[in-house]
């Protein structure tokens, strides 16, 4: 297990996957508050000449909370796409390029291979998401004012990280069906959007991983969601089940095929 974890860490570092994800999170974390404070008001001002400061600030929530909400929606709209495409090849590419053949012949356990991927990238996503959230919090606090505590922000970071872990487990599962990383990425994104749509349309977010995002917004708006515990438990079960199916699919796979 240890050597598998080291291998995944090296992979994350040397293929720049860690870098791409961290850089994109930080990019939005820093850009969103700036957008809100300077660029957006300027744009509105130029577009609608007569508009005064007061009505502009009515349109945009010029506060630390507003900036954080903006960052969270950026993360959901673009951040997830970057995460999915950075990680969609995690299994798909290994299967396609037959790089698992030698490890399997050398006695590596599939459980350890899949488990290490899940572990390393889950921890990374949690850290990256929390870091992004804290940076955004600090930056927005400096630009506007500090009117939220750090604690809820950390929780939000965890919840967003959790949602990305769900995407990660999906990408690994789909990778066992589609040998192509890009195809796996699109399938993962499509499926996660489908889940989000179902959650919104049937008001089922509580029972779906998308509930983590809704719960995070709730925390920021001081509307603590009583059902967040259920959402979290179901999310963990879902990641476990998805990973188990991934493992079973790999165990029944024939290797070194053309």
């Amino acid at each position: 297990m240890k050597s598998d974890i080291i291998k995944e860490l090296r992979m994350g570092i040397r293929t720049s996957r860690f870098l791409v994800i961290i850089a994109s999170f930080l990019f939005f974390a820093i850009l969103t508050p700036i957008m809100m404070k300077y660029i957006l008001p300027q744009l509105l001002h130029n577009q609608f000449q007569g508009m005064n400061e007061a009505s502009i600030s009515q349109m945009i929530d010029m506060s630390q909370k507003g900036a954080l909400l903006g960052y969270m929606s950026d993360l959901f709209e673009i951040g997830t796409i970057i995460v999915v495409f950075a990680l969609s090849g995690l299994l798909a590419q290994e299967i396609k390029e037959n790089t698992l053949v030698l490890p399997i012949c050398s006695g590596k356990k599939l459980l350890s291979i899949v488990g290490s991927k899940l572990l390393v990238f889950s921890v990374f996503l949690i850290l990256a998401s929390t870091l992004g959230m804290v940076i955004s919090y600090l930056y927005a606090g400096i630009l506007f004012s500090f009117d939220i505590g750090l604690w809820p922000v950390l929780v939000i970071g965890l919840l967003y990280g959790g949602y990305m872990i769900f995407l990660l487990s999906l990408a690994m599962l789909f990778g066992t069906f589609i040998k192509n990383a890009i195809g796996t990425g699109f399938m993962t994104l499509g499926f996660s959007l489908f889940i989000y749509f179902i959650g919104s349309y049937f008001k089922l977010h509580t029972y779906l991983p998308s509930g983590l995002l809704i719960g995070a917004q709730g925390i920021l708006n001081n509307q603590a969601d009583q059902n967040l515990g259920i959402t979290l438990a179901l999310f963990l079960i879902m990641v476990f089940v998805i990973s188990k199916i991934t493992l079973i699919r790999l165990e029944n796979k024939e290797w070194n095929e053309r």
Binding site: K2, S3, R10, P103, S106, G107, K108, K109
Partner: peptide, 11 residues
């Protein structure tokens, strides 16, 4: 690193 990785497996 490759051989170290392949060399270390539970069995």
């Amino acid at each position: 690193e490759t051989l170290t990785y392949l060399g270390d497996s539970g069995t």
